[in-house]
């Protein structure tokens, strides 16, 4: 399969071979149905690019490999570079593999005032990685987030799609302990299922935020 690129000088579409070696599509039947449902929300297929990338991130196990981007491009009739451009713009699409738990510490103004950098340094010490790094066992990815907009509950830590509020340098390590025990896989990949179903009454609950003191 080839994708095309647009040449503005000649006003033509030029077929372009894909650099990525061919891989089998990995969207499940349910994911394809979900994508086709989402496409009907918009006047054109291209608009479903963001939700399609959310689905791809889930189907490909938490990160967008070149194969995932190629599959999204094929399914939406876009070029590979166009989808890659979108995927690389937004920070929540993981272009490289992340750990089982993606711990994002908000270090923006209010959180920094109330000790976010102390927490960051404790985590770096505890996990043995610097910001943006993944532990060797693949359990944790630690990164710094820009404002998560729950400044009233500073310091805020986001793990996957869950917010943990009121974290202090004193109690922050209990969160890591709790995550070590948890069986779940928590990259941010649940957001897509919200847009999924338009059928009335079909929602199930999801997400949730926990105060840090609940863990202790």
């Amino acid at each position: 399969m080839t994708s095309t690129s647009y040449n503005a000088l000649t006003d033509t579409f030029i077929p372009k071979p894909i650099a990525e070696p061919q891989q089998a599509d990995r969207f499940s039947d349910a994911a394809i149905a979900e994508l086709e449902e989402i496409v009907t929300h918009y006047p054109e297929r291209k608009a479903a690019c963001l939700p399609a990338l959310w689905i791809a991130q889930r189907e490909y196990g938490g990160s967008l490999t070149p194969g995932a981007i190629r599959e999204v491009a094929d399914r939406l009739g876009l070029s590979y570079t166009e989808v890659e451009g979108v995927a690389s713009f937004y920070t929540m699409y993981n272009l490289k593999p992340r750990g089982r738990h993606h711990v994002e510490v908000c270090t923006c103004l209010t959180c920094a005032l109330l000790g976010a950098y102390d927490i960051v340094h404790r985590y770096e010490h505890e996990l043995g990685v610097t910001m943006g790094g993944t532990t060797e066992d693949g359990e944790f990815t630690l990164s710094e987030a820009e404002c998560l907009n729950y400044c009233g509950g500073a310091t805020v830590i986001q793990v996957g799609d869950k917010y943990f509020t009121g974290v202090t340098p004193e109690n922050c390590l209990s969160l890591i302990e709790e995550l070590r025990k948890s069986q779940q896989f928590t990259p941010a990949l649940l957001a897509d299922s919200i847009v999924k179903i338009q059928t009335p009454g079909a929602s199930t609950s999801g997400g949730g935020s926990f105060a840090a003191q609940d863990l202790i």
């Binding site: 937004y90 929540m92 998560l148 907009n149 986001q158 799609d161 869950k162 917010y163 941010a188 649940l190 957001a191 919200i194 338009q198 059928t199 009335p200 009454g201 079909a202 929602s203 609950s205 999801g206 997400g207 949730g208 935020s209």
Partner: peptide
């Protein structure tokens, strides 16, 4: 809705479903 707001988005999702009903 911003991508981080999964939990608020679920509340809106439910509200939209109920409004359709």
């Amino acid at each position: 809705i911003r991508g981080e707001y999964t939990e608020p988005a679920w509340q809106v999702r439910k509200a939209i479903d109920q409004a359709y009903q």
